[in-house]
Write a protein that binds this DNA or RNA. Structure first.
Lengths: 144, 144
DNA sequence: CATTAATAATTGATGCATCAAAAATTGATA
DNA sequence: TATCAATTTTTGATGCATCAATTATTAATG
């Protein structure tokens, strides 16, 4: 009772559920024949929501390291889903844009993302999701 | 309201909180001068709780892939915290044991792990943690 | 017994994470 | 203006994740 199996501790449950979520998304994307990963999708969606955003800002919004953003954008660029546009005011920054191809993928994924959320939330009332959100915010803050 | 910022969606909160937890642990271990990572610790602790366990079983308990277990054990072995012992009954399996050195590290970490849990749980009543556990179990199941 | 299955662990390829250091460019200040 | 500081992005090193394929060994079966 005092120091039991790690997986029963709430912090490990959070980790394991996060892993499960990531795996689930990657599996569904694969099944639907969409060549993208969970993390690539996060970046693509954020760029779509703010066309022209730069990498530093994107890193903040997506809560990723700048270094990780660089490398994942390389992949999205290789897949021709996004473009790095030179910024006329500063040669240090790129403005990130979704390509036509990228927009197609986004349209394809949006309904799937809703489905995934619905599935994850199955049999959980809205009030409980609200509680969950609050608890997670609190824990996140506690670990700052 | 309909399709807002990803980070406000509970699933992304779970992911972000998990990341924060991992970062927090790694930071504390580093600060305390303990040369171990969050994932290495999970394996070390599981081996300590069942000396002689084999890699397949360890993978199941730690919810990791066998391949990941192999490589993380390589690191723990290199650091001389664990030993892979030949199994007399089957040349396919190793029995995993913590070394004296490994036990020292475990003794060092155990109180720190409690501290971390306490910190994460700050200002959160036990009943809420119970609710959190149940919700996470449900979500985990939903994503199977 | 010989062949085929199944099992345990490893390896290779690829994606993403962190940290630290570097490169390129721009801004600030003496 | 020359130097130094700050900013944006990239790169290298290392750790961990997944998937698929391989190796070695053991079990099952005909």
């Amino acid at each position: 009772m005092q120091d039991k199996d790690l997986s029963s501790v709430f912090l490990f449950k959070i980790e394991n559920t996060a892993k499960q979520f990531r795996k689930y998304k990657n599996r569904i994307f694969k099944e639907k024949g969409i060549d993208i990963t969970s993390d690539q999708w996060i970046l693509l969606k954020n760029i779509n929501e703010e066309e022209g955003i730069n990498q530093t800002e994107l890193a903040i919004r997506s809560k990723k390291e700048a270094a990780a953003v660089t490398r994942t954008l390389d992949i999205l660029e290789r897949k021709k889903m996004i473009v790095r546009k030179a910024n006329p005011n500063s040669r240090r920054v790129y403005n990130l844009m979704t390509s036509a191809q990228g927009k197609k993928v986004i349209e394809q994924i949006l309904p799937i993302a809703l489905e995934i959320r619905k599935q994850a939330k199955l049999d959980i009332p809205d009030e409980d999701v609200e509680v969950l959100n609050q608890l997670l915010d609190k824990i996140f803050d506690n670990l700052k």
